[in-house]
């Protein structure tokens, strides 16, 4: 295990239904990393002296495995005409709250399903479940991001309806989720006014990858030192054509523009 960060592999990820205890639905198909990474490989350490060495060219992209799986997910979404959005933010910026406000507004327009990613607990999935939409929780254990394999497994459990919106809430973390394509149509990064308007410059990879940025908690602007215009400008420097929404999930201010954008995306498929 890595001492600097503690992240492990996705073999430890557990897919759960809301309220379900841990330990269920371990599903390792298509992946050879079993519990605790015991590779079950005989390995002897007798070092002979005259070993012949041979160099083998690979030229293989390290993220290839993830990227291939992400493309499979993307194909699944395309075939079922599903719009998948990957929601990313620091812990606590308001991803789940935003979904709680957004989903009821979609009723009667299009179906929504949700995949929740957290290291532990089904708390977020329980909050979404209370809205009456299909949801599964991916617990990544020590892992600090969702990857394409976890989504692949979660999709089998969730079986989202054709023509629906799929919201994937990533683990609260602005660093590595940027590297892992899940097969989504777009990345939506959420930032809140309590975080500092230089966030886009501190985490350029994330903002560079993002298609949409939601500045949340603008109800708190009078109480914090945060310049929304500066923040937006910083984000634009890193991602020139990012879609931008200022809103407060709490008061509902600015939500209309976001909901209208979402409806347009769903209509345009």
């Amino acid at each position: 295990m890595c001492d600097t960060c503690g992240c492990g592999s996705d073999a430890d990820a557990v897919i759960r239904r809301p309220g379900q205890g841990s330990g269920h639905h371990h599903d390792h198909d298509g992946h050879d990393h079993h519990h605790g990474h015991d590779h079950d490989r005989g390995h002897d350490h007798d070092h002979h002296h005259e070993r012949r060495e041979r160099k083998i060219g690979m030229e293989q992209d390290v993220l290839q495995q993830n990227n291939l799986l992400a493309e499979r997910n993307r194909g699944y979404f395309e075939a079922k005409n599903i719009v998948a959005l990957n929601f990313l933010s620091s812990p606590g910026s308001g991803k789940t709250s935003l979904l709680e406000k957004t989903i009821p507004q979609c009723k009667g327009k299009f179906s929504v399903a949700v995949i929740e990613g957290d290291q532990q607990t089904t708390n977020d999935a329980d909050r979404i479940h209370a809205l009456g939409v299909p949801v599964v929780q991916v617990n990544t254990g020590t892992g600090c991001h969702l990857d394409a394999l976890m989504i692949n497994r979660a999709l089998k459990e969730l079986a989202p309806e054709a023509n629906s919106l799929l919201c994937i809430e990533n683990v609260g973390n602005l660093v590595c989720p940027a590297l892992f394509d899940l097969g989504e149509a777009m990345k939506v990064v959420v930032i809140s006014v309590t975080e500092g308007d230089d966030k886009p410059l501190k985490y350029p990879y994330m903002f560079h990858e993002a298609d949409v940025c939601i500045l949340n908690k603008i109800d708190l602007l009078p109480y914090v030192e945060f310049d929304a215009a500066v923040c937006r400008e910083n984000a634009m420097r890193v991602s020139h054509d990012i879609e931008w929404f200022d809103l407060s999930v709490r008061t509902g201010e600015g939500l209309d523009a976001w909901l209208a954008w979402l409806e347009r995306k769903m209509a345009k498929r």
Binding site: C7, G8, M58, Q60
Partner: peptide, 14 residues
């Protein structure tokens, strides 16, 4: 942050 899972995928591949 993510270098352990990256290291594991490199090890798998090689």
């Amino acid at each position: 942050m993510h270098e352990m899972s990256i290291a594991l995928s490199i090890v798998d591949a090689v």
